[in-house]
Structure formats: structure tokens, C-alpha cells
Design a protein around this nucleic acid. Structure first.
Lengths: 342, 342
DNA sequence: CTGAAAGCGCTTACAG
DNA sequence: CTGAAAGCGCTTACAG
């Protein structure tokens, strides 16, 4: 319908009575331009409210200033914090960040990468646990490989071994192991775990790190003491409720993410169980809000914003070598009032 | 450095032994193409891992599929929830969403709009309270007006009267008034308020709605009972601490946002004050996590995701008329355990 | 320093 | 239905 009467460089050049080339150079400041000409161009551009067409600039070979970040769900505090780190570094470097949420739909993730490729984004950041699914891994590689061959930078946060790209890895297994150790030291012997979908690598790593440390102490974590829910607050609430219904008698519950722990805390309260008097509760991630819960949550603190910053830096610098770099960031157990000695 | 050897449509056409035009048509499905030719093209594209260059497509006049969303901070649960609504509607319509955080820097907001204009995004959504600042309003209009003349769609959530664009308005003033009414009915007479920067329209509206209702009941809200902080959890914590230090003796505290209320709740707990036994606390927005606080927070529930959905729909449909449309969405007072009768 | 011109990778009338 | 060609709005060697 609309005629989209965009003001173009040509309009500016005409108004300033110079050539297209001169107008372009005056605006970009790449080459010297006689002062009076430059000023005429600038004035004309200002007067016409000219904005260069980024698509034309990109097509003509100007370098891009946009990076894509794909995560499961921006409204999840875990991803929000990481995205914050990414945006800080990107902003410092004058990059425009395109954030996308897949809502954990593998197909949507592929689709977004494809769109970002089409946009010729200078970098793509994949944030969040990968899916353990061969078909998906192949489809992902089919998008990522051509993108990288085309000069695109890729970095991931917390992911699959199948993708040979630079990555920032929170030490999930080690963190969970440390947490288990701390909980054992507090005297706990009967544990239950609230877990997310086992197809997510993050879940698998945290669960096994926790389980193995218990095993080393001679404690077996029975499958009946493990409840699975979605990777959300509601998932945590549901899983905790199920555990309660099963009558599991644990003195300590470990939720593989803080977000799930938040739901669990409410489920416990609704069931009339006191935390930590009746049962201790621990999470993982240290998202900002857990400090404000009552009781504040014991958790494994991950440097969330830093995870995003490092990933952006990795992609920003580019990888001149042939090997993919791996940056491992450790978590730190933070004991708060939601757990107590028994 | 890199040669960026992108596979182009021409490569595909050559491999399929058809013309550029035929390759384009086969891929887009716009026009009928002989079946065998189409299949040859599709096969070639698949084999070469071809992805169209979105910039070239855009330049050549294909319609865009990208919308920009600018908010203060994506990691704030309030914006995250709204962004979620936007993304749902956008996703249903095959649009790529570019999310940006300004971190409340007016200059950055202008810069982002400019970048989005350059990208020729089909729509720009401004989410969050405007600044009450004439110079900024002018600069904003200088970006927005040419963008709209160029056919760009603009919609805002919760904003300034100065911008004549479609908008979705949460009823801040009315919601705060309703809340005040409910609190008065519970018997409260001595109030304190935790407010954000008064340059934000949202703050002004909520504060005045609350204050006026109290006034109607013959209660004056003294300036000494109002503490100002940043629009964050820490801002709420600091403001509440200040109020405590001032020795304000209120039976009920109203924080103009839930996020601030969360900080206040913790400040109160740290000071050994019980909520709601010593003091009642209420917020505004009903972000998801307030249900999980202890005690759960009384607040004015805004249909956050719907706010985003409606704004996206407004922009998506476009505005054929000359007047800007305004959609007002009411809030609803939700009484929870953080407030009690006195 | 400045300008004419080619080229970036597509789409879409316009002829066949 | 198919193809040759123009054009989208820039940038940047290449000559002056």
C-alpha cells in the first residue's frame, strides 16, 4: 500500500549538490572530504532526516554490526542474566543484539539460525543446554557449518560436545558435586532430586555430578527419589508435589535449577512443610531473586553475566586457530538459610 | 580477512541449469514453475546449503520479517513478560524479533531506533515508561516520524502522550487508586511509598493515583513518607532502608513496582520487621515470582504478556486511519498474605 | 580530493 | 512457464 518514500543517499547528494560517492564518504568519514562539501552533505542529511539503508550497506560490503543471541526463553532469569552480560559487551562495541527465544523448540532454534544467517549477522550465540538428539544435531550442523565457512562467528554457552565451536562452559558436574559434598557435611543422608528433562545436557551433568558424589559416600540415589518436571517454576512445583505424594522421606531436596527450586519452595509451603526445619532445599545457578526468598536459597552460584560476556568476547575476537576454544567457569556453593545441619 | 564465500542464488541456478529468475521463483513459490525444474532447484539449494541473503532480498523489495522491541532492561521480569507476549504473536506470524535493552539511557534508545530504521524493520515497539524530558521527546520524534513516513509501524506500551502513535496503556493511575481503596478498607491509615525516578511517567501515574485516593479519604501522604530509589530490586531495598532509618511509622508500604517491593521485603526482613505482622507491603505489576515470595505479595495484577501481544498486534495490523489508537488494559488488585487488616 | 561506474545478491515487471 | 534485464541503495576501487 504505502509508497515507502525513503530518503536515499542520492537525495542527500542532490540536495548537497555533490556526487553520490562524495556524499557517502562525507557521511562515513572514511576518506578525506573538503570541509565545505562535508558540511553541505551533513546539513542536507540532517535536514532530510536521512538514515542509511543498512541492507544496501551490507550488500555493498560494509561490515555488519549485529549479533544474534538464541536462547530458550528470555523471560527465564537464568537466560536474562546471561543475555545481560552479552548485551553489555555488545553495547560497548557498538553492536546491535538480536535476541530470540525458542521456547525449547528445536525446530524453532534451527529456523532462527537460518534467519540470522540470512541476515548475515556477524556472530551467533547459542545460549543454553543442547538437546541430546542426533537428528537435531545434524540439522544444527547443517546450518552452522555453512555459516562459519561464510565467515560467521559462533559461540555457545553451556552445550553439546557435538558442535565444534568456541564455548563457555559452566562447570555443572563439578558444581553439583561440590554441593553434594557440602550437603553431606551438614549431615544429610537421605536425598531427593527435582530434575528437568533428561534430554538436556545441563540436567544430565548436574544430576550425575550430584549422584556420583553421593555414591562415593556410599549413598545411592534411588530413581524413586528423583522427580522430573519441565525446566520451569511450574515444573519444580509439580515435581515437588509428586515427590510429596510419593511420600519420599528425604531430609534434603536438590532442584537442578533455582527456577525449579522456587516452585518447589512454594509447593513445600503449601503442603505445610517448613524449609529448612522439615526439609532442606538447594538449587543451582544463583539467579538474583533467590536472595529475596524466604528462606534465602542455598545454591551453586554461577557467574551468569560473565558467562554471557565471555561468550560475546569469544565471538567478537573471532577464532583464528583451527581448534575450538573452551572456557570453563566454575560455580561456587553458597550456603544460605534454606539448608541446615541435621 | 575471510573471503566470505557465500553461496548465492546464481550458484544454485547454475547448478540446477536454470536461469536466475527461475531459481528465485522456485525457491519462493510465488509463481508456477515446471515441476522438474523446481525440483532441480530445490535439490541444488539443499546440496549447496544455500541461504538467501536477506539484505539483498530486502533491497530488492521483498517484504521484511523483522520487528524491533526496545525496552529498558530485558532481564527485568516486567519487561521479560511483556517481551514474551510480543514474541509469541511475532512467532505466530513468522517474524524475527530483535530485542534491545537501553538500560534506561535515553541516548541509547534513540540510537537503537536509528539502527532499527537502518535495518528497515517492519515495526518498532517501544516498551516501557517514557522520560519526561522535552529535548528527548524531540529527538525521539525526529527518529520516529521519518520512520513512519517511510511506512514503518510503531506501537508503544506504557508511554508518553507526546508521541502520536498506537499504544497499549496499562491503567496505572486507576490501578493504584483501586489498590489504595482496598488498603483503606483493610483499615490502614498511615502509609509510606517506595517510588522510582519521578521522570518516568509510570511512576508519576501510580503515585498520583495512590495519593489522590488517600486524599479523598482525608489522608495526606507526606513527602517524608515517600522514598525514591532506582527502578530495581536494589532501588527498593535502598528506599525501604531509608524509610526505616527515617523512622517513618506506617502500617502499610506501597512499592510502585513488584521488583522494588521484592527488595523492600528483604530490607524489612533484614531489619527484623515482620510482613505483614509489623507492616503490610504491596507492589504493582504481578510479575510471576511474587507468588513465590514469603509472604506472597499483594499487588495490582497487570496482564503483562497480553500487553505485549496487543502492542504487537497493533503494529502488525498497521494503522490505516489518521488517529492513533489507544488500548487501555486495566489492572486488578490481588490481595495476598503480605497485607493484612489492622 | 572528487566523480563515473561497477558490483553486492536478490526480485519482478516485461517480453517471449 | 521461462529468461534477459532493470533496479533496489549503497561502497569502493579506478581514473582523473
Amino acid at each position: 500500500m504505502d509508497a515507502h518514500p525513503h530518503v536515499t543517499l542520492e537525495d542527500v547528494a542532490r540536495a548537497a549538490e555533490v556526487s553520490l560517492a562524495t556524499a557517502s564518504r562525507a557521511l562515513n568519514g572514511t576518506t578525506k572530504v573538503r570541509t565545505d562539501l562535508r558540511e553541505r552533505v551533513l546539513a542536507a542529511a540532517e535536514k532530510l532526516a536521512y538514515t542509511p539503508n543498512a541492507h544496501a550497506q551490507a550488500l555493498a560490503g560494509a561490515s555488519h554490526r549485529t549479533v544474534g543471541v538464541i536462547c530458550h526463553d528470555v523471560s527465564d532469569p537464568y537466560f536474562a542474566a546471561i543475555a545481560r552480560g552479552v548485551m553489555r559487551v555488545a553495547g560497548d562495541n557498538g553492536l546491535l543484539v538480536m535476541l530470540a527465544s525458542t521456547f525449547r523448540d528445536p525446530q524453532k532454534e534451527i529456523a532462527y539460525i537460518s534467519m540470522l544467517r540470512a541476515q548475515r549477522a556477524s556472530a551467533i550465540l547459542l545460549v543454553g543446554s543442547g538437546f541430546e538428539d542426533k537428528a537435531w544435531e545434524r540439522a544444527l550442523a547443517a546450518e552452522i557449518d555453512p555459516y562459519r565457512r561464510g565467515g560467521g562467528q559462533v559461540a555457545v554457552v553451556s552445550r553439546h560436545r557435538s558442535l565444534r565451536v568456541d564455548s563457555v562452559q559452566p562447570e555443572n558436574r563439578e558444581g553439583a558435586a561440590e554441593l553434594a559434598k557440602a550437603l553431606l557435611e551438614m549431615g544429610h543422608r537421605r536425598f531427593a532430586v527435582l530434575t528437568g528433562p533428561r534430554t538436556l545436557t545441563t540436567v544430565v551433568d548436574r544430576l550425575s555430578g550430584f549422584r556420583e558424589t553421593l555414591a562415593e559416600a556410599g549413598i545411592e540415589l534411588a530413581e524413586s527419589a528423583v522427580a522430573e518436571g519441565t525446566f520451569t517454576r511450574d515444573g519444580g512445583h509439580a515435581a515437588m508435589s509428586e515427590l510429596l505424594a510419593r511420600g519420599v522421606d528425604a531430609t534434603c531436596v536438590f532442584a537442578v535449577t533455582d527456577v525449579m527450586a522456587i516452585g518447589a519452595l512454594t509447593a513445600l509451603r503449601e503442603a505445610g512443610r517448613s524449609v529448612p526445619d522439615d526439609v532442606s532445599l538447594a538449587g543451582f545457578d544463583d539467579i538474583p531473586v533467590v536472595r529475596d526468598l524466604s528462606p534465602p536459597l542455598t545454591t551453586v552460584a554461577l557467574p551468569l553475566e560473565e558467562l554471557g560476556e565471555r561468550a560475546m568476547e569469544l565471538a567478537f575476537r573471532g577464532n583464528r586457530g583451527t581448534r575450538s576454544r573452551v572456557l570453563r567457569l566454575p560455580g561456587e556453593v553458597v550456603l544460605r538459610a534454606s539448608t541446615r545441619k541435621v
